[in-house]
Simulated assay, not measured.
Amino acid sequence: MESRLQQKLRERREQAALEGIVSGLGDLLTGGALGPDAVPEWVPQAVAHTWELSTEPLELLRDDSPPQEVDAWMTSLLTTHGITGRLYVATHQSIRPWLECDLPPDGTGRVRETIEEPWMFLSGTQDGLLLVSESEYHYEAFVARADGRGGWAMQEADR
């Protein structure tokens, strides 16, 4: 259990980190956000599922790929899975976990440079999630979709 002092220190550290993220994303931000209580219940479940060893990524990209190739790959994944335009980007800060952005096609590089991986994008309709993380030799992409009944499903690769 976190003491009141520990909570204040954590919140202060998170606020400083959040200010850096807001500064880095700048004009991509709309001013909207999802607080801890507004994140759809299925999202943390889907994120946790990506960390299970049995969960296969939808796509892989070599981790020695140049940054512009990583950015293009992430943009292609977002477009392919309909997570475009106004969307939410995960901050990894509990005080403000998701910031709303108007993400242009060339905006993934700014997200990647500003926020630590894993990079997570939630559709503006909050029914689609793209998570990109770096593993030992690859970047891994996972896509999850809300099923409209309170559940969700991971999209699987055609293998």
Results as ranks from 00 to 15, higher is better:
Thr79Glu: 15
Ser135Lys: 11
Thr108Asp: 02
Trp73Asp: 09
Trp51Pro: 02
Pro97Cys: 03
Pro105Ser: 00
Ser123Cys: 11
Ala146Phe: 04
Thr50Val: 03
Pro105Ile: 04
Glu116Phe: 13
Thr75Tyr: 00
Leu28Val: 10
Gly85Lys: 05
Leu122Ile: 03
Gln7Phe: 05
His81Cys: 09
Leu131Ala: 03
Gly35Asp: 14
Ser94Lys: 00
Asp64Lys: 06
Pro105Phe: 06
Pro66Arg: 15
Leu122Glu: 09
Gly35Met: 09
Ala72Gly: 06
Ala46Tyr: 02
Thr91Lys: 00
Met74Thr: 01
Glu113Ile: 03
Glu116Val: 14
Gly107Pro: 02
Glu113Ser: 15
Arg149Gly: 10
Met120Asn: 02
Ala90Leu: 02
Trp42Asn: 12
Ile115Val: 15
Arg12Met: 06
Pro66Phe: 03
Leu25Pro: 09
Pro36Lys: 07
Ala72Thr: 12
Ile21Gly: 10
Asp102Ile: 09
His81Leu: 01
Glu11Cys: 05
Gln6Asn: 06
Ile83Lys: 10
Thr114Met: 11
Val132Ala: 03
Gly20Trp: 12
Arg13Trp: 08
Ala157Pro: 01
Met120Trp: 00
Arg145Thr: 09
Ala146Tyr: 04
His138Val: 06
Thr91Ser: 04
Leu78Gly: 02
Glu140Leu: 13
Leu18Asn: 11
Pro66Tyr: 05
Ala48His: 05
Gly24Ser: 13
Asp158Lys: 08
Leu77Gly: 04
Gln126Lys: 15
Gly150Phe: 04
Thr125Glu: 15
Gly82Asn: 06
Met120Ala: 08
Pro67Gly: 06
Val111Thr: 08
His138Asn: 12
Gly24Tyr: 01
Trp42Pro: 09
Gln7Glu: 13
Leu130Lys: 08
Thr80Cys: 12
Glu14Pro: 11
Arg159Met: 10
Pro97Met: 00
Leu25Phe: 11
Glu100Asn: 10
Gly82Cys: 07
Glu56Lys: 10
Gly151Tyr: 07
Asp127Pro: 01
Gly26Arg: 07
Arg159Trp: 14
Asp147Arg: 01
Leu60Thr: 10
Val143Ala: 01
Gly31Leu: 14
Leu58Pro: 06
Gln15Trp: 13
Trp73Ser: 01
Val39Ser: 03
Ala48Gln: 15
Pro104Lys: 02
Leu29Met: 11
Phe121Ser: 01
Arg12Asn: 08
Tyr139Lys: 05
Asp127Trp: 02
Glu100Pro: 04
Gly32Cys: 13
Trp51Ala: 15
Gly26Met: 04
Leu25Asn: 11
Val132Pro: 10
Arg112Leu: 13
Asp158Asn: 13
Leu130Gly: 08
Ala144Ile: 04
Thr125Trp: 05
His81Met: 02
Arg13Asn: 12
Leu103Pro: 00
Ala90His: 10
Gly32Val: 13
Trp51Gln: 14
Arg159Lys: 10
Gly85Ile: 05
Leu99Trp: 01
Leu34Tyr: 14
Leu61Pro: 06
Asp147Met: 09
Thr84Gly: 09
Met154Asp: 07
Ala38Glu: 15
Gly148Ala: 09
Glu56Thr: 02
Pro97Ala: 02
Arg12Tyr: 09
Pro40Tyr: 11
Glu14Lys: 08
Gly109Lys: 00
Glu117Trp: 05
Ser76Thr: 08
Phe142Leu: 00
Pro57His: 07
Glu140Pro: 02
Gln7Gly: 08
Trp152Asp: 08
Pro40Met: 12
Ala72Glu: 14
Val39Met: 07
Pro57Ile: 02
Glu117Gln: 08
Thr80Ala: 15
Ser135Val: 11
Gly151Ser: 07
Gly124Ser: 03
Ser133Gln: 07
